[in-house]
Simulated assay, not measured.
Amino acid sequence: MISAETRGVFAIAPTPFLPDGALDMASLGRMTERYVGCGVDGLTILGIMGEAHKLEPEESLSVVREVIAHAGGLPVVVGISAPGFAAMRRLSAAAMEMGAAGVMMTPPPSMRTDDQIAGWFAQAVAQIGSDVPFVLQDHPTATGVVMSNAVIRRVVAENPSCVMLKHEDWPGLDKISAIRNWQERGEMRALSILCGNGALFLDMEMRRGADGAMTGYAFAEMLRRVVDLAAQDRDAAQDLFDAHLPLLRYEHQPGIGLAVRKHILAQRGFIAHPDLRAPGAALNPAARAEVDYLLARLKARDRGCGL
């Protein structure tokens, strides 16, 4: 199970599809094993990057089952966010029965005030069970839900099963500092903080006190090395991060970012096809050429990148 002591790198995995939109079950197993080979500490599935909102309920269960079967015992966190609690309750229960290490959830866009947000989490926990460890996903640029530092502390205090913050606020470095300062003063209990945002700020997030990364950048090897180096050799971590920054920037484009990631993962052999399930963006020839150019430059600058 994940806990407040969980640290390291959790790769957020996409959901591979065949060109006709069907689930690519063969790629699911291979992709999971490749992530394990990159040295990650765990995997996160069925998030935004996993196109979870495009899956039928039984497809979601198939993804959970296949990934856990190939994860080699590494913890797997399952995204369960949905408009209603019935779907969340069913997926959470099934995932935990299959061996998931916890679930991840975030309120729907209609939640605006601190009381609404805190109330939603209390209701969600009542539905999935207070024995299920969960990750609080704070991703306002994607969800439209703005969580103040105070409401995050409140949710953590009111729900002992909240063991991790997936930090994706932007700008959000001061949020990490505020939480760590509260903890140092004994004003907030322990909480794991793993960061997303495509790793675009991972170098600085580690300096602010993050415990690692939970994101989908196409080179989990870089995430592993930056997280490990951050506490030992800041300049070495920064040099490695800088080598990947042009590709990180390109991959972070709204609209086509997931298509870029899937293109790279297909190039690397993690998945057989780069397709998104409709509706979804696809890279045109010019964009593919730009990504390939950046990959060639990355290979020259970081020989350990996995290319």
Results as ranks from 00 to 15, higher is better:
273 H>R: 06
224 R>Q: 06
217 Y>S: 01
215 T>V: 04
189 R>H: 03
229 L>R: 11
178 A>F: 15
195 C>L: 06
179 I>W: 08
194 L>S: 01
185 R>C: 00
250 Y>W: 11
213 A>Y: 08
196 G>V: 05
191 L>V: 01
256 I>Q: 02
194 L>C: 00
191 L>S: 04
173 L>D: 02
233 D>L: 09
174 D>E: 09
243 A>I: 14
185 R>W: 11
250 Y>A: 03
196 G>Q: 03
205 E>I: 06
200 L>V: 06
211 D>K: 01
259 A>P: 13
273 H>Q: 06
266 A>F: 14
273 H>T: 04
222 M>L: 04
268 R>P: 12
246 P>C: 05
294 L>P: 14
213 A>M: 02
210 A>K: 03
210 A>D: 02
243 A>Q: 15
231 A>N: 04
261 R>K: 09
282 A>P: 11
223 L>G: 03
204 M>Y: 14
232 Q>L: 11
179 I>Y: 09
195 C>P: 05
181 N>E: 11
271 I>L: 11
188 M>W: 08
220 A>P: 15
211 D>A: 10
265 L>N: 09
257 G>R: 09
267 Q>W: 12
288 R>Q: 11
271 I>F: 07
258 L>F: 13
198 G>R: 06
186 G>C: 00
239 D>W: 14
244 H>A: 01
233 D>R: 07
239 D>Y: 10
201 F>C: 08
214 M>K: 01
267 Q>S: 13
275 D>R: 12
288 R>T: 13
176 I>V: 09
227 V>L: 11
252 H>R: 06
196 G>T: 04
181 N>R: 06
275 D>A: 12
246 P>S: 02
235 D>K: 11
254 P>W: 01
225 R>T: 08
215 T>R: 00
248 L>M: 14
206 M>E: 12
239 D>K: 12
231 A>V: 10
190 A>V: 07
169 D>P: 05
226 V>Y: 10
203 D>A: 14
245 L>P: 04
192 S>R: 11
212 G>R: 01
232 Q>R: 12
278 A>T: 15
230 A>C: 09
172 G>L: 06
268 R>K: 14
191 L>E: 00
212 G>K: 04
262 K>T: 08
284 N>F: 13
260 V>Q: 05
293 Y>R: 15
230 A>S: 14
174 D>V: 03
266 A>C: 15
184 E>S: 08
224 R>C: 13
258 L>G: 04
217 Y>R: 01
213 A>Q: 09
234 R>W: 09
179 I>S: 00
209 G>K: 04
240 L>A: 02
194 L>V: 06
257 G>Q: 09
290 E>K: 14
191 L>K: 03
179 I>N: 00
196 G>W: 10
188 M>H: 08
